[in-house]
């Protein structure tokens, strides 16, 4: 861009962009800008949280059943992983302010490692859902042919860990998966039991009394539809969250290069600061996703009412 520099012939610190007068103004602008962006992000995820709220308030049992198919341990582990990464991120900002290049680089790398671990765990979980017929789109699950004697191995992608608590295992408690010749979304008898239990105890909501039954009889298809909605929401929410993690990792990579080149100092560290804000925000989203998706309704497993 060709500009006549008449107006800014004063001292020009490195990192100061032409439209600003001084570093203070630039720092203020980027900070306000990032927070405005985060307000936008709140509303972006907010639409999903509203959908969750509406469906969960109407079908708590189906959502409890869905939660129980998730592995709370993995969710819990991932929460810890993200919290640690938030700590290292905060420390990266701290060392950038101090102008300590080495520790800054170390902290950014650590943050990236934990971010990657998070995504790895997510991948394990997703694969597991795929193996157990819990992807809410018919035909998008692993095909398990009928009538074969499928051992555990045959039916799964080989995973280092066995994760899902109660997904579509056979009703007899053996470890064999349900046959799923068309890769459909499936639920288990345990899910239906949960509904029956709630019905007996008398705490089905008005919507549930209509939404699970046909002609007064428990209708597995209808229950399945509601659990399917849970999983649809689960995949969209965690998927979008994971996407934000991927973007965050990209930002970290860029920061790493900048930090490596020793760009940041006590006077100029706003890129680290605002990237940190983004990273912490993504962490906060997970802080809510974890209880909402993994934990609520889990006490029913504990023998509940």
């Amino acid at each position: 861009m060709t500009h006549d520099d008449k107006h800014d012939d004063h001292y020009h610190p490195p990192g100061l962009q032409h439209q600003f007068d001084d570093m203070g103004q630039q720092m203020d602008s980027v900070t306000i800008g990032m927070w405005t962006f985060l307000a936008q992000e709140i509303m972006f995820f907010g639409g999903l949280f509203t959908a969750y709220l509406v469906f969960r308030s109407r079908f708590p049992m189906a959502f409890a059943a869905g939660s129980n198919h998730l592995d709370a341990f993995w969710g819990w582990l991932n929460t810890l992983v993200l919290i640690v990464s938030s700590l290292t991120m905060a420390l990266a900002v701290f060392y950038a302010q101090k102008g300590n290049r080495n520790l800054q680089v170390v902290m950014i790398i650590l943050t990236m490692i934990f971010g990657t671990v998070f995504l790895g765990v997510k991948a394990i979980e997703y694969t597991d859902k795929y193996n157990h017929g819990l992807v809410p789109v018919d035909g998008w699950n692993k095909v398990v042919p009928e009538g074969e004697d499928h051992g555990k191995e045959a039916a799964r992608l080989s995973l280092p860990f066995e994760t899902t608590v109660s997904a579509a295992e056979s009703a007899d408690g053996s470890d064999k998966p349900h046959p799923n010749p068309r890769g459909e979304f499936q639920i288990t008898d345990a899910d239906l039991d949960l509904v029956t239990m709630a019905q007996k105890e008398g705490f089905l909501t008005e919507s549930e009394k209509i939404g699970y039954f046909s002609n007064g009889e428990l209708d597995p298809e209808k229950v399945k539809g509601k659990v399917q909605i849970f999983f649809w929401i689960y995949f969209v929410m965690t998927g979008l969250h994971a996407l934000h993690m991927v973007v965050g990792l990209g930002i970290m990579l860029w920061l790493l290069v900048m930090a490596w080149r020793n760009t940041f100092s006590a006077d100029y560290y706003s890129p680290v600061e605002i990237s940190g804000l983004y990273w912490h925000f993504v962490d906060i989203v997970w802080i809510f996703l974890f209880p909402l998706l993994y934990l609520l309704g889990r006490h029913f497993l504990a023998g509940g009412h």
Partner: peptide
């Protein structure tokens, strides 16, 4: 724009 647009964005995406 900041507080409303993201909601329609996510809705249309869904």
């Amino acid at each position: 724009m900041i507080l409303g647009t993201p909601v329609v964005a996510i809705t249309i995406l869904l």
